[in-house]
Amino acid sequence: MDLLTAVFVAPFLDMAGSPVFLAEVVIVGVLTGVMYSLVALGFVLIFKASGVFNFAQGVMVLFAALTLVGLMERGVPVWLAILMTILVMIGLAFAIERFMLRHLVNQEPIILFMATIGLAFVLEGVGETLWGSNVKALDVGIPNASFEVGGILLNEFDLFAAASCAVLVAVLAVFFHYTTIGRALRAVADDHQAALSVGIPLKTIWVIVWSVAGFVGLVAGIMWGARSGVQFSLSLIALKALPVLILGGFTSVPGAIVGGLIIGVGEKIAEIYWGPLLGGAIENWFAYMLALVFLVFRPQGLFGERIIERV
């Protein structure tokens, strides 16, 4: 009886008792969720455009952040460092196309997936060699003051992160749906050979999509890095992006966003209100449990394309 109360009644009483606190928890959750979304977005882009599940996306986030910090440590001004990092990410996209993808055209998805695992190791190694393996602070000058609205504590940095994420998503959505190049990207994702026959240059498309994913990775890297420092554990947030993708659907940009938010908010609320009951640290596995539930009931995710096999 006590247990039932503790699980089903007490947490809700707590929430009702202190709505301001609840709001703060939700906001923290939303902002964490935004971060997850950013990482997941990189996955979705590449998956949508090339059907490849890019295991290296997490490492790309790390690599971008490392490059940025490394450049800044060597005295490059912030804006120039960001610009240079973008160029590095584009260069990386070219390299990936030239040395990896070009040789794997028309291969099974699993082979491409294996290739991205390899890529993850290579990138991690190269990053470590170039920039060292210490934890580094990243300060790109995003304001970080706190202020109160209606008794709720807000942080400028978090709002900035949320806003940039929103802009990024809007731009990407327009890009994919309303531009010729977006259509070409989707075409390549659908059928390589047919895309070639209508004159879509496959190489260019690969480079573009990996560049965009690299750019999204950089944004994610800046946000995470500025918040909790640039370190190798950053590549592990890729693992958190997985449940986000399962929730949102692998092919949906809005899905990545909503999925990220649900997981972010869900795990914070679970941690605060139910955590003590289960000895804490729910945050670490809550997302995976949620993903598991989704896999059973809605395998295509919230927004993913419905899997319909036609005879």
Binding site: D190, D191, A195
Partner: peptide
């Protein structure tokens, strides 16, 4: 060899590449 997930219009538009 069509782009199965895209609409007829989008498929035809890719022909303009």
């Amino acid at each position: 060899a069509l782009f199965k997930g895209m609409t007829t219009l989008d498929n035809i538009m890719t022909g303009r590449n």
